[in-house]
């Protein structure tokens, strides 16, 4: 049976803190008009992904139908409705990276982690994403792990690099 959000928050102070942070962000907005995407960005930052209860909360707070909120979440690649691993590995498959051998890098990462783009390793350590250019094309091929961008990557370099992320 699903508990309602309030009871869950009572039981889970960690979760409450997260919702409070989101509430605080929304409370400080000058206007709610047009703020949905910004709010979702913030929510994903706080929760790591966008679970249903967060989307319901957002739809209530911004006073818009759930269908609108879901419609936006599913339209944009950036938003995820499933939890992500501790580290997010994004391999760039933009043009510059592609012509400089990004496919081999991507294949190596897939092989090393045993997952495809959009998936998370079973131990929750890594999620793998594909991106279309992060603007460091001059250093192609490029791999981004969490907030660090690595240029001039090779399959071998990336495999070594992954070890650094526990």
């Amino acid at each position: 049976m699903k508990m309602n959000l309030e009871d869950r928050l009572e039981e889970n102070p960690e979760l409450k803190k997260q919702f409070d942070a989101l509430e605080a962000y929304i409370g400080e907005l000058a206007t709610l008009e047009g703020s949905l995407i910004n709010v979702l960005h913030r929510a994903q930052e706080i929760f790591g992904y966008l679970p249903d209860e967060v989307l319901e909360f957002v739809s209530g707070r911004l006073n818009m139908p759930r269908s609108t909120v879901y419609g936006v979440v599913t339209f944009y690649h950036f938003f995820s409705r499933v939890p992500k691993g501790r580290h997010i590995v994004s391999v760039c498959l933009g043009t510059a990276c592609y012509v400089r051998g990004a496919n081999a890098v991507y294949e190596k990462v897939m092989k090393t982690l045993g997952i495809k783009a959009g998936e998370t390793t079973r131990d929750g350590r890594f999620s793998l994403d594909l991106v279309r250019c992060v603007g460091a094309c001059g250093l192609a091929p490029v791999v981004v792990i969490d907030k660090d961008t690595y240029g001039r990557s090779t399959p071998e370099k990336v495999a070594t690099l992954l070890n650094k992320y526990a």
Binding site: G34, I37, N38, V72, Y76, H77, F78, F79
Partner: peptide, 26 residues
């Protein structure tokens, strides 16, 4: 500042404006 969310079509001006409004960028 408005931050995109990973949709190439949002570079097209009418889609971009919808996205600033917080909607689907069509």
């Amino acid at each position: 500042i408005r931050i995109g969310a990973g949709a190439f079509v949002c570079g097209e001006e009418t889609a971009l404006l919808r996205s600033i409004e917080g909607k689907r960028g069509t």
